[in-house]
Design a protein around this nucleic acid. Structure first.
Lengths: 342, 342
DNA sequence: TTGTAAGCGTTATCAG
DNA sequence: CTGATAACGCTTACAA
């Protein structure tokens, strides 16, 4: 059921002026008299007029909507990136369409189609964990929709901005920290190597080990989708190895939290018998006992930057002169009880 | 920068048929020959045609978009309600626009305006914690946009579906459980009483107390926005009272988590010296040590129901014969270590 | 400063 | 089964 809509014609009729004048008045056009503008605005309010975005979008070819695709909104990193994006977007009059891929490639592909159909003005995305093909993003680009990647980016599509952190360095900092604390058998719960950032984190981990002359042992490494179930299962696997690892560097924080829970359930003292470091923070990271050491990412800042770059590209007349850069932000090691021995 | 778009005319020209035939073919209209349909679909694909939703929405007066407004997406309850909504929506060909009010009334009002302008087909909302006026929702209704409330509902607008849990009973179960365990001075960290659900939870708490002949002491009750900072601060306040409360029933789980963290930081044994029960679950509730007892809500189910009711209303010819009911689902007490004495 | 009229890309109506 | 033509509600030359 839909009520009758009031259009600019209704306002025009009421004031006995033309619809174009109404349109211009509502858009605060320069050469419309203040008097007319005021009258129009008054009547608009009186009649409860709401501009139809579909109609104006049809002609201006703009929807003033940008869309975010993330694996899941209930992870702290993504939630705060979204908050950053929302801030920049709403300051500039854009509506934000938030979509979840639920870490499924197929869903991501479908979402892109929906977004093209809806004529969003731009897309900000962090890839699903099993996304290894990028034709859908190419398609969006071909449809004239700018794309900005953040966090889990795609290097195969070069004509896009990319906002990342130095994952390699973050992982290196984490591993080095564990080594400095005296841990010798440092395991790693990593993300599927399909995503670049998880390859980087693995590489950083390796560098951290080698710097302390610790051997890299493939048997101490596991790859997964980084959810809590994976974390629990793989922690169990790792802790049943003989000899047992004495520390775990987790590629995200959900797995670090489950590793901690598993250890406590099995009376393995953290950090004495098992040091734990995570990557990226959850709200509860600092509330857990022991609190979890982790690599902090400037997530909201990343979101803001992504949005700024996207709007820049949307506003650009032609994409020919775009200077597509990859922007790398810094991570920070936050040392807490889960890894501090002395 | 925008690329040239391919429209149904391009397809029509290529095949030397009319645009209306193309339109019908693409919409799988009944009396178009299979042959034409196939040809149209082939050329559409060839040319990379993407239907323009703005244009079709303009004429059909439908955007096939529904919107969700929640306080914050990174709370487990809302995230899984969203997941439920997404499932039902996408099964029915709807796109979901997720918006955050960040628990601010003003933002909620603005969002509604944006949604009206964007001609969404319906809105599902859980109110910001300080929302006590509902004109913005009235406005949406007047614009012909159905609204369904869930969780934090608004009884003032009667012509809407409402999906809730039995908050009163949930709180009662929680409090009774604590009393059964032998706790005597049970405090309550509640939500601002502007929201109905938090009044209900307070009432359920009172009933739980009175059933065990425990006096209701206003001094043991605090009201807040239920974020982690509030949780920490108010736990501190409560635990400095003399005599000290020996248990806390928290109106959500973030505050329960912060209460637990505070207690552990101050060497207050949970549950021996302090029993804790929360309301609604976070992903980590069961992973914490001790794991947190809480009231489980069927959040995804609530989302699904809300979406179903909304689509029902959207599909209804007129809202006159709508049977607006309030649907109440059941909660469940999940007992874990944080409240179990023996 | 304002009006006229064309047109954005679809779908709906009516005719054939 | 298919085509012509008029909408949908707005913006924007171009004209006045």
């Amino acid at each position: 059921m839909k009520k009758k809509k009031v259009s600019i014609y209704d306002i025009a009729n009421r004031l006995e002026i033309s619809s174009s004048t109404v349109s211009r008045a509502l858009n605060d056009h320069a050469r419309i008299s203040e008097k007319t503008k005021l009258a129009v605005r008054r009547v608009a309010k009186e009649l409860g007029f709401e501009k139809n975005h579909l109609a104006s979008g049809l002609i201006t070819n703009k929807s003033f909507t940008i869309s975010i695709i993330v694996p899941a909104v209930n992870r702290n990193f993504f939630a705060s990136a979204i908050t950053g994006i929302e801030k920049v977007a709403s300051e500039n009059g854009y509506t934000v369409l938030i979509c979840q891929s639920h870490d499924q490639y197929e869903r991501e592909v479908k979402l892109i189609d929906t977004l093209i159909i809806n004529r969003v003005d731009g897309i900000i995305a962090s890839l699903a964990i099993n996304t290894e093909e990028f034709d859908h993003f190419r398609k969006a680009k071909n449809a004239g929709i700018p794309v900005v990647f953040f966090d889990r980016v795609c290097h195969e599509i070069e004509d896009t901005f990319k906002i990342v952190v130095n994952d390699f360095n973050g992982a290196y900092l984490a591993t080095r920290h564990l080594a400095e604390q005296g841990f010798k058998r440092i395991a790693h719960i990593g993300g599927y190597q399909s995503q670049n950032i998880f390859r980087e984190r693995l590489a950083g981990y390796k560098k951290g080990l080698s710097e302390f002359n610790l051997p890299f042992d493939e048997g101490l490494v596991r790859y997964c989708a980084l959810n809590t179930d994976d974390g629990t299962k793989l922690t169990e696997e790792l802790l049943q190895l003989k000899p047992r690892p004495d520390a775990i560097f987790c590629a995200n924080n959900l797995t670090a939290i489950s590793a901690l829970a598993y250890a406590m359930d099995h009376n393995i003292k953290v950090p004495e018998a098992l040091g734990i470091v995570g990557f990226s923070e959850e709200t509860v990271s600092s509330l857990l006992k022991p609190a979890i050491t982790s690599i902090r990412q400037p997530s909201e800042q990343m979101g803001k930057l992504a949005a700024q770059k996207l709007l820049e590209e949307i506003d650009a007349e032609s994409s020919d002169n775009m200077d597509y850069t990859e922007i790398e932000l810094r991570t920070e090691l936050i040392v807490r009880a889960s890894s501090k021995l002395e």
